[in-house]
Write a protein that binds this DNA or RNA. Structure first.
Lengths: 140, 140
DNA sequence: CCCAGTTGGTTGGAATATACAACTTTCCAC
DNA sequence: GTGGAAAGTTGTATATTCCAACCAACTGGG
């Protein structure tokens, strides 16, 4: 198999993967959309996130982010802390409840993953993890 | 690194990947939404697809599929052929124009992929392709 | 210091996508 | 045949998004 075919194969597998994610859609966590979940995870993972950062990172309109964040705020999953360097902005922080919900969703997904990968030998897992990481780094 | 950590790493990379796909959103092919593109690709790839099959496969409501297919039909990208075994149904087939559009989109994505992976040695590419394929098989 | 332009964020309005429900036509099992 | 299930279409409601207009606050050049 030449290089072009191999890349075509990778392309095919990636589209298959994204389609499956698409097919499962919002069935991940009840009552929390994929976008809301993604934003919450980002707020949890990164330090000093403002709404504008989220908009830039996910190529969403700032009004969209504003409403999504408002929703997360109303549900008590994030709290906006006034940014001491810029009175216009707020730094978004996750609440304990938000963290709990996020951990819950993550755990359920990881469990499913672990279950499906139970037949993989340790070595293949490590290789796959490393290649995936390199792939993401090269693509971003 | 133990098995749990490795799997957590894979999980993290996969979410990073899906988020990037999400972020790029519909910017893939002008004038063709991600859903429309996905359905078109499915119609092209599988034999004897009916609207109900698409709905079942992607967990979409049949009304949603009906409208999406109507749109693809209006654009001349698919043609519904009456199903000779069932007068209620139509078998969806891709048109030459639909194929052309699909090939165009695929080629542009594959080019981008090839460009980003240009630094990878042949062997790593092959390993990655094989592991991805196995992963998809195990997850589906 | 002040003013022009920029940036963070909110809100109103319109477009779009989707799910749910009701309906028609056809199929199938009895 | 008849009753129930299935394929698809269409009406309606809701959710998500973008665009535009807006306000408040920041920034840099005079």
């Amino acid at each position: 198999m030449d290089r072009g075919e191999t890349i075509a194969g990778i392309y095919g597998e990636l589209t298959r993967f994204t389609r499956r994610v698409r097919a499962r859609g919002g069935a991940w966590h009840p009552d929390l959309s994929l976008v809301a979940y993604t934003l919450l995870a980002h707020i949890d993972g990164a330090g000093r996130v403002r709404a504008a950062d989220l908009a830039a990172h996910y190529a969403l309109d700032k009004s969209t982010v504003s409403r999504q964040v408002a929703d997360l705020r109303e549900r008590g999953l994030v709290t906006p802390v006034p940014d001491e360097r810029d009175a216009r902005a707020h730094v978004l922080t996750i609440t304990p409840e938000g963290r709990r919900r996020l951990d819950e969703a993550n755990a359920s997904l990881r469990d499913r993953l672990e279950d499906r990968l139970s037949s993989w030998p340790e070595e293949d897992l490590a290789t796959f993890a490393a290649l995936l990481a390199r792939f993401n780094a090269d693509m971003s």
